[in-house]
Each structure stands twice: as structure tokens, then as C-alpha cells.
Design a protein around this nucleic acid. Structure first.
Length: 423
RNA sequence: GUGGGUAUGGCGAAGUGGUUAACGCACCGGAUUGUGGCUCCGGCACUCGUGGGUUCAAGUCCCACUAUCCACCCCA
């Protein structure tokens, strides 16, 4: 059987690629407007970076990484997300020495070994933003506003920003203790996974989708209940800034992000109608991450957006602009000599920026006209032996059917002028 | 990793055991010789994901494998 692409990957074909380009262009424009600069990091990194950065207890590290040994027996991993790499670069390339904060963005493929389904792939694409070196709540708000603004520019509707604060290490410890105390008598009612989470990472029990666990945790203390004064005022400031900016957010005390590095603000943007995987963007603050991977203590915040999912939302909402490239003229040459002459004319016109094409299959006049029509050409430039003899070219308007003769010596000029006038 | 659905020409899609595998779209060719878009005519699957099995006979039944889709876990 013929070789097929790896499971969970996709070939992006003409017709679809234009949609990606549109999305990417919009992203770059927003980033430029907000003063974020692009960073490009390797697509694979030392496995240890993700183990330490993303966290040993996360699903990503436990079961989803594409890890391999290179020829020097070093363990390498195709990046499952972008934040760890950006922080590594911040440290390795000493970006902390530049004026702070450093505002970066990236787009590119990420890899996770999972069973594919709607909105989930093994190779998928993310656009992400990271701000390093600023701990003020205004940064959290700006980053969320950037996301919101991007969606507005794309024309997406029905979005909801879910917001929470998971606190700092201090209040997190207090929360952990309170939560464990709350659950202590009903621990046996929890699902298998949550029983394990009870010791390792009780916070995640709040996020369990099992209806039984949700019932058990009804009324359990949330991270919001146990925030320290600093975290609380930080969160409140973020909320008030977002309200002022007109962002439609909803505080969700049970929102817990799947990565270990988050502190304080955590958020997700959800959109219905694209299937079960409705999170279109996720992010938050990670004030301990840079230090964790060996850099100076540096606050950070960022998000990652799944481009496949954004495109899916644009698709169902019918928000793509028309991007079909428009053909202006089809040059139809009949016979070998005419082809030589026609080819030269086509090149001259192309040199002046006029979109012209010629048949590449040696087809009949009829077939070529048909093709011109199908490709939406305004004009057909017909050059046969007869015309060549008389040094003219037939100029046929494909909309009206009108046909006139133009001397070969004036063709370039005439067509160029018509193109300029848009006729 | 677990569960369910589906696999027929480039795409969509009939076919519910029995001679030559509907149809639509797309594509190609033609309808007086060098003229498109509409119309008409014609062409386009020695074969039904792969491998076994049942049967006189299988695209149609059974088994396995593979692929794909959807869902769970989790996430983008």
C-alpha cells in the first residue's frame, strides 16, 4: 500500500493554506500593533527542558511526548508547547539583560502523542505570546486583551474567557491543606485518578470531569477562597482592567490549567460549536518557571492558541474573506511560433505586474477558452498563425464577448493600461 | 490507553448474496474545420481498505488486520 502520512498529521493543501495565511497575517499584525516581537526557537529540545518546565506530573510529560535518542545518545523531544522553549531562550540568550519586560510571540508546529479526534492532532500549530520580566496585573490584562482583540478582528462570535487565579506557592499550600481536609472523609468516593491526585496534586480534583467527583467537590474550597492578600488584589486589578476594556470574561473558580507552572492568573477561551475540544486558547502567569529552568527569578505570563481550532471556529462561523487569486488575462497561443511570441508577451506583462497565464498542456483553443473562463480571467489574448502573420492579437473580453484586434507592437501597453484601470 | 462508527472511481453517494457495480459533481473529448460560460452527446471503478473464511455464488455474511472519524482521559 502507498505510504501514508503519520497519524494525526495533515497535508495543508491549496485552498486551505490561504486560510492559514490569512490567520497568520492577522496574528502578526496584532502583535506588531501591541509591540510584541517574534521569536523562533528549535522544534526539538532537550527532554529535560519539558520535564522541568512543564512538570513531571502533567499528562504532557507523562504520556504525550515525542521523545527520541539522537546519535549522541541525548534524549530529545519534539516540543509539546512553546513556553518552556521561550523561557530557555530568555535565560540562554540573556534576554534578561535587555530592557524589561521582553514581549515575545511565536507560531509554529507543536507535537503531542495522542489519539487524534476533532480538534486534536499529533502535529498541531500554536500561536503564543510570552511577557517576561513584569509582574504587574496590567500585563495579565494586556495579554488577555490581545487575545480578545485578535478574535474581534477575525470576527469570531460566541467566545467566552474563563478566568481564575490559582495563587502563589504560599496560598497554594494553604489551599492544598484546606482542600485535603475537606475531602478527607469522602476520599473513597472519588474516581481512581482523583484518589491519586489527592496526594500528588489535589488542585486538579476540582477540574475532574467525572460527575461523581464534581458532586463530591461541591462546595469545596477553591483557590480563590484561599488567596493571600497580594494574589487577591492582583486578581481584582486584572478583573477591573478587563472590565474597562470590554472583555467578556467569566470567573471560573474551578478552572485549573493542566501545566504545573501556572501561578496567579489562569485563563482559557472557549468557543462552542467546534466539537468537544472547545478550548481555543489557554494561558496564565508563571512566575516561577524561569527560575525553575535555571535562570534568574523572573515573572512571566503568556498564552498559547490552537490555530486548528481557531480555523475550525472561523470555518463554522463563515468568517473567511475571499482570498481567491484573480487572474486578469489568459494568453492563448496556437501553434509553435505563436507560442514563442506569446510566451514573450506573457513575460513582459508579468514583468509589469499583470497576472497572465498560458496553457501548459498544448490544448485546443476551445479548451483554453474554457480554462480562461473557469479561472475567472477578464480577457483572453488570442494569438494564432493568422494573427502572427498580420502582427496583431485578438483581444476578447470574456465578460461581454466583444472581440477587437490590437497590433502586436502595442499589446503590452494596451493590456497594462486595461489592468491599471481594472477592466 | 479505553469505547463506538465508517471504509465503493478525484470528491459526494446508491447498492440490504445472484448475469456487464446506479447517479450527482469534477475532469477529458465532441456537437462543420480557430472561440468560453448554458444545453446536448460521449468517455472516465477488469472492481468495492488489506488478508483470510462461509457459500454453487459476496461490494453485500463472518474473522483478523490497517486506516480514518467521533467520544473518554486530557488538552491547543
Amino acid at each position: 500500500m502507498a505510504i501514508q502520512r503519520p497519524k494525526g498529521t495533515q497535508d495543508l493543501l491549496p485552498g486551505t493554506v490561504e486560510q492559514w495565511q490569512y490567520l497568520e497575517e492577522t496574528i502578526r499584525r496584532v502583535c506588531r500593533d501591541y509591540g510584541y516581537e517574534e521569536i523562533r526557537t528549535p522544534i526539538f529540545e532537550a527532554t529535560e527542558l519539558f520535564q522541568r518546565g512543564v512538570g513531571q506530573t502533567t499528562d504532557i510529560v507523562k504520556k504525550e511526548m515525542y521523545t527520541f535518542l539522537d546519535k549522541g545518545d541525548r534524549s530529545m523531544t519534539l516540543r509539546p508547547e512553546g513556553t518552556a522553549s521561550v523561557c530557555r531562550a530568555y535565560v540562554e540568550d540573556k534576554l534578561y539583560g535587555q530592557s524589561q519586560p521582553v514581549k515575545l510571540y511565536y507560531t509554529g508546529p507543536m507535537f503531542r502523542y495522542e489519539r487524534p479526534q476533532s480538534g486534536r492532532f499529533r502535529q498541531f500549530h500554536q500561536f503564543g505570546v510570552e511577557v517576561l520580566g513584569a509582574d504587574q496585573p496590567i500585563v495579565d490584562a494586556e495579554v488577555i486583551c490581545l487575545v480578545w482583540d485578535l478574535y474581534q478582528r477575525l470576527g469570531l462570535r460566541g467566545l467566552e474567557v474563563h478566568l481564575n487565579s490559582v495563587g502563589c506557592p504560599t496560598c497554594r499550600a494553604a489551599h492544598r491543606e484546606q482542600l485535603q481536609r475537606f475531602l478527607t472523609t469522602r476520599k473513597s468516593e472519588l474516581c481512581q485518578d482523583c484518589q491519586e491526585r489527592y496526594e500528588r496534586n489535589p488542585l486538579r480534583i476540582l477540574d475532574c470531569k467525572n460527575p461523581n467527583c464534581q458532586a463530591v467537590t461541591e462546595g469545596a474550597p477553591t483557590t480563590l477562597d484561599t488567596l493571600c492578600d497580594d494574589c487577591r488584589s492582583h486578581f481584582e486589578k486584572v478583573l477591573s482592567l478587563l472590565s474597562g476594556a470590554g472583555v467578556a470574561y467569566r470567573v471560573d473558580p474551578r478552572l485549573v490549567r493542566g501545566l504545573d507552572y501556572y501561578t496567579k492568573t489562569a485563563f482559557e477561551v472557549m468557543v462552542e460549536e467546534i466539537g468537544a475540544q472547545s478550548a481555543i486558547c489557554g494561558g496564565g502567569r508563571y512566575d516561577g518557571l524561569v527560575e525553575e529552568i535555571g535562570g534568574p527569578a523572573t515573572p512571566g505570563i503568556g498564552f498559547a492558541m490552537g490555530l486548528e481550532r481557531v480555523l475550525a471556529a472561523l470555518q463554522v462561523q463563515g468568517k473567511f474573506p475571499d482570498t481567491k487569486p484573480k487572474l486578469f488575462a489568459m494568453l492563448i497561443a496556437l501553434g509553435d511560433k505563436a507560442q514563442n511570441e506569446g510566451f514573450a508577451i506573457m513575460n513582459a506583462l508579468r514583468g509589469k505586474g499583470v497576472p497572465v497565464r498560458m496553457d501548459l498542456l498544448g490544448r485546443s483553443l476551445k479548451a483554453q477558452l474554457k480554462a480562461a473562463d473557469r479561472e475567472g480571467a477578464e480577457l483572453a489574448l488570442i494569438l494564432g498563425e493568422e494573427e502572427l502573420e498580420r502582427q496583431v492579437l485578438l483581444l476578447r473580453d470574456l465578460n461581454s464577448g466583444e472581440q477587437t484586434e490590437v497590433p502586436l507592437s502595442k499589446v503590452i501597453e494596451v493590456i497594462y493600461m486595461k489592468h491599471q484601470r481594472g477592466v
